[in-house]
């Protein structure tokens, strides 16, 4: 395996991790489930490409605009649907995700902006997107995002969100504005998804609405579950493992997704909390655990 190949997998893991991280906050901290985040990735991807190829904006600005657009649409959706409970929220996101893809399937743009030719042709999508997502850039964005998320979740706001997941009614009684925190989680997750979309578009080099089918949303959700809902390190582990696994298992080809499905069912039965079980992998805790191990041994010896 060449470094180029590994780099490809790592970049893919990076932008997937962005989506998974956002979803992990949404699901793990508020108990809301989305089956439409591929739609927000789609919005981010198209907006960012329109920004760079159409208006000639720099890559960073395009990513920011992509993220913010996805976030605004996510916030609008949240405003309408966050009042719905469990299943209905999940169905609404499913509908929006599919609707976004179908809208882009029917949009045709063929114009010249500032002397640049820009073609967006429905199901054929956009080709020749400049390749700007290098490994360094992707890693930097992910590190910043992970750090910001970790800080937020360790703050008062993070604890409030946790309270909502554990018992919404009790959290409300304790004076937590549950709607506001659900909205915050929704905005965060869609912002991340939008940025991820921009990164994806400028890595793969072309865009087609078919890249953002519902299966993709489900795959993101599976990664969240696999890693453990609401655990940042769990998300990182889950994403990198599940992104690398299909590459390692190229030989089994079509059977890959069969095992995916089976794995989800088994995880739900055996270990519904996922790999990390909502806990974080932390350096200090690791040392504590080591110390405990040694103490235990000494006691055993004495």
């Amino acid at each position: 395996m060449s470094w180029y190949y590994i780099q490809g997998i790592l970049i893919q893991s990076c932008y997937t991790l962005m989506v998974v991280l956002g979803l992990s906050v949404l699901t793990g901290y508020t108990g809301l489930f989305s089956f439409g985040h591929a739609g927000f990735v789609c919005i981010g991807a198209y907006i960012s490409v329109i920004c760079t190829m159409g208006f000639g904006l720099p890559y960073g600005v395009a990513l920011l605009i992509a993220g913010l657009t996805a976030m605004i649409i996510g916030a609008l959706l949240g405003r309408i649907t966050l009042k719905l409970k469990g299943d209905y929220f999940c169905i609404a996101t499913l509908g929006v995700g599919e609707a976004v893809r179908l809208i882009f399937n029917n949009v045709r743009i063929d114009t010249v902006i500032n002397g640049r030719k820009f073609v967006l042709d429905g199901a054929k999508g956009i080709s020749n997107v400049p390749l700007k997502t290098s490994f360094g850039v992707a890693l930097a964005i992910v590190v910043v995002t992970v750090t910001a998320t970790a800080f937020l979740l360790n703050s008062k706001h993070g604890r409030n969100m946790l309270a909502i997941r554990e018992d919404e009614l009790a959290a409300q009684m304790a004076g937590i504005d549950t709607f506001r925190y659900k909205m915050l989680a929704m905005c965060m997750s869609t912002l991340y998804a939008g940025i991820a979309g921009g990164m994806l578009a400028h890595y793969i080099g072309y865009l087609q609405p078919n890249m953002f089918q519902m299966v993709k949303s489900t795959e993101y959700t599976i990664m969240v579950i696999f890693g453990g809902m609401g655990s940042i390190t769990g998300s990182v582990l889950g994403t990198v493992l599940l992104c690398a696994l299909p590459e390692l298992l190229r030989a089994i080809g079509d059977w890959r997704l069969v095992f995916y499905g089976l794995a989800v069912i088994i995880i739900m039965i055996v270990r519904p909390k996922g790999l990390m079980g909502g806990k974080e992998l932390r350096v200090d805790l690791f040392f504590q655990w080591l110390a405990g191990l040694f103490k235990g041994k000494r006691k055993g010896a004495a």
């Binding site: 959700t221 599976i222 579950i225 995916y260 069912i265 739900m268």
Partner: peptide
Amino acid sequence: IISAMGASIF
């Protein structure tokens, strides 16, 4: 719901 999705993918 998650299990159902898993079964459908399977």
